[in-house]
Amino acid sequence: MTDIIARDETASLISADKVEGTDVFNNDGEKLGSVQDVMLDKRQGNVAFAVMAFGGFLGMGEKHHPLPWDTLNYDDERDGYVVNLSKEKLEGAPTIERNETNRLYDRSYGEKIYGYYGVPPYWM
Rank of each mutant, 00 (worst) to 15 (best):
T2A: 13
T2M: 09
D3R: 11
D3F: 10
D3M: 10
I4W: 06
I4G: 00
A6Q: 08
A6N: 09
E9M: 10
T10V: 00
L13H: 11
S15K: 03
A16Y: 07
A16I: 14
K18P: 04
K18E: 09
K18R: 14
K18C: 08
V19K: 00
V19F: 00
G21I: 08
G21E: 04
T22H: 00
V24T: 07
V24S: 04
N26H: 05
N27G: 05
N27R: 13
N27F: 05
G29Y: 06
E30D: 15
E30M: 11
G33E: 09
V35P: 01
Q36S: 14
Q36Y: 12
Q36H: 13
D37M: 09
V38I: 15
M39K: 10
M39Q: 09
L40M: 15
R43C: 04
G45M: 07
N46T: 08
F49I: 03
F49Q: 02
A50T: 03
V51E: 04
V51P: 00
A53I: 04
G55F: 01
G55C: 03
F57W: 11
L58I: 06
G59F: 03
G61P: 00
E62S: 06
E62G: 01
K63F: 06
K63H: 09
P66Q: 00
P66L: 01
L67V: 12
L67E: 00
L67C: 03
P68Y: 03
P68E: 02
W69G: 03
D70V: 05
D70W: 01
D70F: 03
T71I: 14
T71S: 13
N73L: 10
N73G: 09
Y74Q: 02
Y74D: 02
D75Q: 08
D76F: 05
D76G: 02
R78D: 03
V82R: 05
N84E: 13
N84C: 04
L85D: 01
S86T: 15
S86L: 07
L90D: 07
L90N: 09
G92D: 12
A93P: 03
P94A: 10
T95S: 14
E97W: 07
E97D: 14
E97S: 15
E100T: 10
E100Q: 15
E100F: 10
E100G: 10
T101G: 10
L104G: 02
D106E: 12
R107N: 07
S108W: 01
Y109W: 08
G110N: 01
G110K: 00
E111T: 07
K112H: 05
Y114W: 08
Y114R: 01
G115T: 11
G115Q: 07
Y116M: 13
Y116S: 08
Y117M: 04
Y117C: 05
V119D: 03
P120N: 08
P120E: 12
M124D: 12
M124P: 01
